[in-house]
Structures are given as C-alpha cells and as structure tokens.
Amino acid sequence: MTRKRIATTSLAGCFGCHMSILDIDERFLALADLVEFDRSPIDDIKHISRRCDIGIIEGGCCNEENVETLREFRRNCNVLIALGDCATMGGIPALRNNIPLEQCLLEAYRDGPSVQNPSGLIPNHPELPLLLDKVYPCHEVVRIEYFLPGCPPSAETIWQALVALLEGRQADLPYELIKYD
C-alpha cells in the first residue's frame, strides 16, 4: 500500500495542537508506516513539494502570511482538517476581534503599561506580515472538510480521527473525545 502524504502547519496558533499530535507517543511509529510527511514543522519542509492527501491546519488566520499558507494547503491537499479551537473558531488570538486593530497595536507597542517605546513607532517592515482586521477561523477563508475542536484536541482524538480517515471510513468518535476545551 502506498503511504498517504500528510502536510501540517501552525498558523495563528501556539503549537499546542502539534504538541498534541506528538502526544500520540509510540503510535507515531505506526503512523510512519501509514503516512509520509510533506511540509510540516515536524520535518521543517518549508513548502508543499507535491500533492498531499491530507492537510492538517492548526490556528486561524491573523495575518496575510497565514492566508497565503492556508491557500497553499487548499491548493495542494485533497482533504483539509481544521485542528483545534483556533482553527475552528479563532481561539485565543480572536480575543482581539472586537477591539479595533489600531487600538490593539497602540496598546501593544505604545500605550501598554509595560511598554518602553520613546519613538512611539509601530513595527512596520516589509518583511513583517500585515495583520488582518481580525482573526478568521480557517473555514471562513477556504473550504475545510473536517473539524476537530479542542484546546488542544487530545492525542486520542487526533489518532482516532486520522486512522479512520486513512482507512477510508467515517470517524465515529466517542462522546468524550470531542470537547471545546
């Protein structure tokens, strides 16, 4: 059997969901028999090299680079999984969503009680990705096939869902594995 190709990325997330992927522990060896990793923080490949079966997305979109990466995944993956609360609903980064962006930047770089910035300048270099007006869940940017909520989703949740998908059957996850916290 040819191994399925998987790509993973963390957008506006904390890498907690990727830690939860690693939390499948010794089952990672079994996973290595089933899949081959393309672009992923796990192997540090920077761009998807060829068409992938599954793309796993951690985090929502808070800046233009996130959107570009998410679109690269959508173009090159047959199936996308939104992994974790940030990907499915914006999560902690989305706490800024009801505060105007300018106010967020001023608080972070000029007015915050612990900020020392006599110039009053806000970082604005061409290499810095521009922030979006707010943080978007992945499915508000591209089409997403599967959602695994959780902060983070447990290793068991990820494992059972992934194995079901790789075996081409519906993931019938038990009640205690789909949680929003």
Binding site: T88, M89, I99, P149, I178, Y180
Partner: peptide, 18 residues
C-alpha cells in the same frame, strides 16, 4: 453542542463587542 455533534458552526462569527 456536544450532544448534537457540532464541531464548528457553519455561519460566520459576529465577534460583537460586549
């Protein structure tokens, strides 16, 4: 939401200031 099997809402979020 758990009981009804909601994994993510289909409508866009409002993110209203409250």
């Amino acid at each position: 939401a758990y009981r009804l099997g909601v994994t993510a809402p289909r409508a866009p979020y409002f993110f209203q200031a409250r």
